[in-house]
C-alpha cells in the first residue's frame, strides 16, 4: 500500500496534469551552475506534493520554484542565499535537510546516541554476574536429548 500514497499524491495534490520535472527549457546553459541547481532542487521540498523534492515533482508550483532557484543561482546567489530566500517565505518546511538547531539536535545526533546506548547496554550485559546453574535454562530431558541426537544424525546425513 505504500506506493498508493505516492500514487494518490500525484493524482490529487498535483492534479494539474503531468509535466515532467525539469523541463528542457528550464535548464541553465552553464553546466556547473545547472549541476548546482539540480543538487539544490533535490534538497527543496515541493510544498504542494508534500513528500517530494521540487526536482522530483510534477506540480506546476514546483516547476516555478525550480525556475526561481535557477534564476537566483544565475544571478550569483550562493546555495545558502537561495535556501534562505525560500525559507523566509515557506519556513523550514521547505528544506528536506532540516537545519541543525536546539530542537533538531536529537534528530541529528539520535543515530549516534542509539549506537552508544546499544553499546553501553551490551557492555552492561556482558558484565552481569554469572548465572547460578540452578537458574539457567532447563536442560533437555533425557528423552528430548535422545530425540535431538537422533534427528541431528538424520539431518546431517
Amino acid at each position: 500500500m505504500k506506493r498508493r500514497a505516492f500514487a494518490i499524491c500525484v493524482a490529487s495534490a498535483c492534479a494539474f496534469g503531468p509535466a515532467l520535472a525539469v523541463n528542457p527549457d528550464e535548464k541553465l546553459a552553464d553546466p556547473t551552475l545547472e549541476a548546482r541547481a539540480l543538487a539544490l532542487s533535490r534538497e527543496i521540498r515541493c510544498v504542494v506534493c508534500q513528500n517530494q523534492s521540487i526536482d522530483d515533482s510534477n506540480a506546476p508550483l514546483a516547476a516555478d520554484m525550480r525556475v526561481i532557484v535557477r534564476e537566483r543561482i544565475a544571478a550569483g546567489d550562493g546555495d545558502a542565499e537561495v535556501k534562505n530566500f525560500l525559507v523566509s517565505r515557506y519556513g523550514n518546511f521547505v528544506l528536506l535537510r532540516p537545519p541543525m538547531r536546539a530542537d533538531t539536535w536529537f534528530l541529528w545526533f539520535g543515530p549516534a546516541l542509539f549506537l552508544i546506548a546499544g553499546a553501553a547496554g551490551f557492555a552492561a550485559y556482558l558484565r552481569r554476574p554469572a548465572i547460578p546453574a540452578s537458574q539457567a535454562v532447563p536442560e533437555l530431558s533425557a528423552d528430548e536429548r535422545r530425540r535431538l541426537e537422533e534427528l541431528e544424525r538424520r539431518g546431517g546425513a
Partner: peptide, 13 residues
C-alpha cells in the same frame, strides 16, 4: 502565471 507573487507570499495552494 509564473508564481512570482505566489512564491513571494508563500502560497501552497
Amino acid at each position: 502565471f509564473e508564481s512570482r507573487l505566489a512564491i513571494e507570499l508563500g502560497v501552497t495552494g
